[in-house]
Amino acid sequence: MSHPSVVVLSYGSGNVRSAVRALKRVGADVELTADPDAVGAADGLVVPGVGAFGAVMDQLRSAHAPRLIDRRLAGGRPVLGICVGMQVMFDSSTERFEPLGEHREGRDARDGTRRAGGLGQWPGTVSRLRAGVVPHMGWSEVRAPRDTVLFDGVAGERFYFVHSYAATTDPAALLDPLESGPARLPRTTWATHGEDFVAAVENGALSATQFHPEKSGDAGFQLLRNWLTTL
């Protein structure tokens, strides 16, 4: 019996070994690499992310990852973002950073907040959570949509989060359904820490989670198994 092949993108972001181990545990053949040929050939690509949004974007650009991700998604090839690997799928973030060039920063016209540009796969800005305690670190319950694939069998379970920033607007609400097509609108899963925020998004070939499935016990392993069924 063949196992799905998965590349965990290696571009210098944090400790990704736990993601590799978790994917192997649920039945994937896993390679940790940024080699373009391997990224293009794999059944699935996982984009992890740890640290500041702007720093992760700089690392992704250095590895030519935006182009590799775009090519996969253009061909309908599955991609899974995790934690900051999910945040960078949005247009931008207000997280403070030290940009390497003027083209990598912007300023919000309403309040002057400096923004780091993301990959722009989904509309919206990632911002600091409005909560009494930040970072949000620990287990939180999620609220998944009815037609979820990722959360099949684990909708309403608790998953492990470590983050200070999140998207708080449903990307589907920011898209024009006449342009996107109803079947292509993102399906959003929510969680709450001080305020409601986006815990996961499923959007055709592109899926992402704000939490760490590889650190979320049996529920996280089941979510990864569910993702493997889409490859």
Rank of each mutant, 00 (worst) to 15 (best):
E102W: 01
R114F: 04
Q121V: 11
L100G: 12
R107T: 14
G118P: 01
A116I: 02
S92C: 13
R115M: 14
E98I: 09
G124I: 06
L129S: 08
G117T: 07
G120W: 02
R104D: 13
T94R: 04
P99A: 00
G124E: 03
D111K: 06
R110I: 10
P123W: 04
A109L: 15
G117Q: 08
R115L: 15
H103E: 15
V126P: 10
D111S: 08
R115P: 11
L100R: 09
Q121C: 10
E102R: 13
T94Q: 10
R107N: 11
E102S: 13
S93C: 01
G120I: 03
R115N: 10
H103Y: 09
E98C: 05
R128Y: 12
T113N: 11
R104I: 03
R114S: 12
G106F: 03
G106S: 12
T113P: 02
R110M: 09
R96V: 15
G112E: 05
G117I: 08
P123S: 09
S93R: 03
W122L: 15
G112Y: 02
D111V: 02
G101D: 13
W122Y: 15
T113A: 15
G101H: 12
F97E: 11
D111R: 07
E95S: 05
G101N: 08
T94D: 12
L100F: 05
G117W: 11
R104H: 14
F97Y: 04
S93W: 01
L129A: 08
D108Y: 04
E105K: 14
L119Y: 04
A116R: 00
V126F: 02
A116W: 00
G112Q: 04
R104W: 13
F97D: 04
E102L: 10
T113I: 02
G101M: 03
S127C: 11
W122I: 10
A109G: 12
R128D: 14
R114M: 11
S92P: 13
R104Y: 12
L100H: 08
V126C: 02
W122E: 04
G106N: 06
E102D: 13
S92N: 11
R107L: 14
L129T: 10
L119F: 03
D111M: 07
T94N: 05
E95M: 07
R107H: 13
G112H: 02
A116C: 00
R104L: 14
G118F: 00
H103V: 12
T113H: 09
R114I: 08
T125L: 06
R96N: 11
D108A: 13
G117M: 12
D111I: 02
A116T: 00
E95A: 04
F97C: 01
R115C: 13
E98N: 11
V126N: 03
E95W: 06
A109Y: 14
R115Y: 09
L119C: 06
H103L: 09
R114Q: 14
R110L: 11
D108W: 02
L119S: 02
G106M: 05
A116V: 01
R128M: 15
T94V: 12
A109K: 06
L129G: 06
L100I: 01
W122N: 05
A116E: 00
T125I: 06
R114H: 06
R128T: 15
R114Y: 04
G117P: 07
E105I: 12
L119H: 04
G101V: 00
S92V: 07
G117N: 05
H103G: 07
E105A: 14
G112V: 03
R114N: 06
G106R: 08
T125H: 05
R104T: 11
H103I: 10
S127G: 13
A116N: 00
L129I: 14
R128V: 15
